[in-house]
Design a protein around this nucleic acid. Structure first.
Lengths: 343, 343
DNA sequence: ATGAAAGCGCTAACAC
DNA sequence: GTGTTAGCGCTTTCAT
């Protein structure tokens, strides 16, 4: 109510006003500290009157814990990442951790963010460069990869079940009688895309089939449209396209519909990966393999917690998903057909 | 290279190794401080060898500046917000500021985040409750509203041009001969939705028209679909629907196409607001009024900078947009038609 | 240009 | 349970 321009009240000010020592003030604000309830009320009252709030910076300095987790993002345009970030923000908040966000493509911030004694650094679907890995190690900041792996590196990671997802999609496409299946890859250097592709093509091979076509995308919008056009301009079109993520698959679907007049799910089947919210929207109805965000984020926060408690062993968690069959793919029929009869 | 488990090196350690005083180390890491280049190199070398990095927490404690900006988010599912957040992250990073992200719907974090001496608190398209406003004032944390206003409150804000956008859309719909125009509102308590609606309906009235129908949405997916269905189940359908944002408009468009078999842009016109990336994708091609993210974020960071420099005057910036005419609306014809002939 | 000394606001022993 | 005492790792006068 008073002192609008005065400097912010400190624990000392509160102590004086409450007639107790400064450490009593500290204890009153520390859950589980030994203070009599009468002292605590005195302190809390005085604090209230002074508009006092403990200074987290000073606390961090002495406890040597920032309670902050760095999160590096690449592009948030992919709804899978923005959903993951949102959930991460929720769960970290609930766990009493603060989320320090920064863009991985900027040089400066990444260097400066390490100056905070981060509990952990989460790479949200972006690769961990070896330079960064070294710096994090030097700064004693453990890294957790989200939606990426770096096998043999001793870095913790949380991913969806890329390999089995790829296999499940291949199995479904074969069971529903597709004969010319194509794959639209994401970024080449991404473990995510590679694992999905590997599961996919391996299953095809096991069944005596092979990939009909392969296009290189980059997980993002513009190139996915181009890649899809190339596929559809072939003299003999693929009858199914598996895109390395939903974001690309939705673009591909729109290109097929809007530019080529195809009825997706009849003239051509399209499959994605992630199960983003849009995938189940009325106009899209995309068959896809899910990456359940909630358990993936839970696993991430769990790893961070363990690291905070001194556990040093890296963990590589794979969260299972499931095939979500929707209208963008042709349904399996009892007897396999030899139906190479479109167009 | 050495000391993998030793405690992190401090400025003192570096000083000893370099044979200088600890303040020399501090100066070597402070741009523009007075150090001879020979001392600086000695320090930098020693620091390198020890893997030293200044402790941002200790620095903040003494400078009383955290260089952190709090950003409160509601839901990131709307791509306009995730794009804004991404750009905010970029620009704040470039300006040397850290972004502390937290979910506005959680009680605890908002209280705790105020314990960091934030330079500023950005409310990303969420309302500022009076309780929070009071707390921020007490904690001396200035608030900046992004995509919201709170007129007469003395709180700074950055928004798109909602009023003129609404008018421009109304003008275009009338010019293209629509006769039964509906409005799908966002959240009622949102200044954003209200301003858009006001500009829209006011223009209609000025031209001797009135709103044919109004549906209440909430800016989000599920309700938008329901609202659109209600509109399309009317005995006499609207021939144009203005949705308070793109996120709802895209859903509405899909419902019209997939569930009602309408050809959007011929059987019915749909307009959004924001110009999110998807709006221009092949399968959507949504007419909309743009909210240019880059200048909006620039204005936001600019306000934060000024606040950091002691400026106390609130600023309310309105960033102009433009009408993006795409295929989801019927084109204007030379002579107005009386074409109530659909269905 | 450099070093010594004094804190920033808090927590954590340590006595009592 | 409470006060006293040391710092946490840095920046910043103040001398020199």
């Amino acid at each position: 109510m008073n002192g609008l321009k005065s400097p912010l009240a400190t624990a000392n000010d509160v102590a004086r006003r409450a007639g107790v020592s400064q450490s009593a003030v500290s204890r009153a604000f520390t859950p589980g500290a030994s203070v009599s309830s009468v002292t605590r009320t005195k302190v809390l009252e005085a604090a209230q009157e002074l508009g006092y709030r403990p200074n987290a910076i000073a606390r961090s300095l002495i406890t040597r814990r920032s309670n902050m987790v760095g999160v590096a993002i690449g592009n948030l345009a992919n709804p899978f990442f923005s959903a993951a970030l949102e959930e991460l923000s929720n769960q970290l908040g609930t766990a009493g951790l603060r989320l320090l966000l920064f863009s991985a493509n900027l040089e400066a911030p990444i260097e400066e963010v390490l100056q905070y004694r981060l509990e952990s650094l989460v790479m949200l679907s972006i690769p961990l460069t070896s330079k960064l890995a070294v710096e994090c190690e030097a700064a004693r900041v453990p890294v957790v990869l989200f939606n990426r792996t770096l096998p043999g590196s001793g870095v913790s990671s949380v991913t969806g079940d890329n390999g089995n997802g790829g296999r499940a999609i291949a199995a479904y496409l074969l069971a529903s009688g597709h004969e010319r299946v194509a794959f639209m890859a994401g970024l080449n250097e991404s473990s995510t895309s590679r694992e999905r592709e590997e599961g996919f093509t391996r299953y095809l091979q096991e069944q005596g089939h092979s990939l009909y076509l392969r296009e290189q995308g980059d997980f993002d919008g513009a190139t996915a449209a181009t890649a899809m056009r190339r596929l559809l301009l072939r003299p003999v079109r693929p009858d199914a396209v598996f895109c390395a993520n939903d974001h690309m698959a939705i673009i591909a679907l729109q290109v097929a519909q809007a530019e080529f007049g195809l009825e997706v799910g009849r003239d051509i089947s399209i499959v994605g990966f992630d199960d983003v919210p849009q995938a189940s929207s009325p106009g899209v109805s995309l068959t896809t393999y899910s990456q359940p965000i909630d358990p993936m984020v839970k696993a991430t926060v769990d790893i961070i917690d363990r690291l905070g408690k001194g556990e040093t062993e890296p963990r590589n968690v794979v969260v299972p998903g499931e095939l979500m069959v929707r209208a963008s793919t042709r349904k399996p029929r009892r007897s396999p057909q030899n139906g190479a009869n479109n167009r």
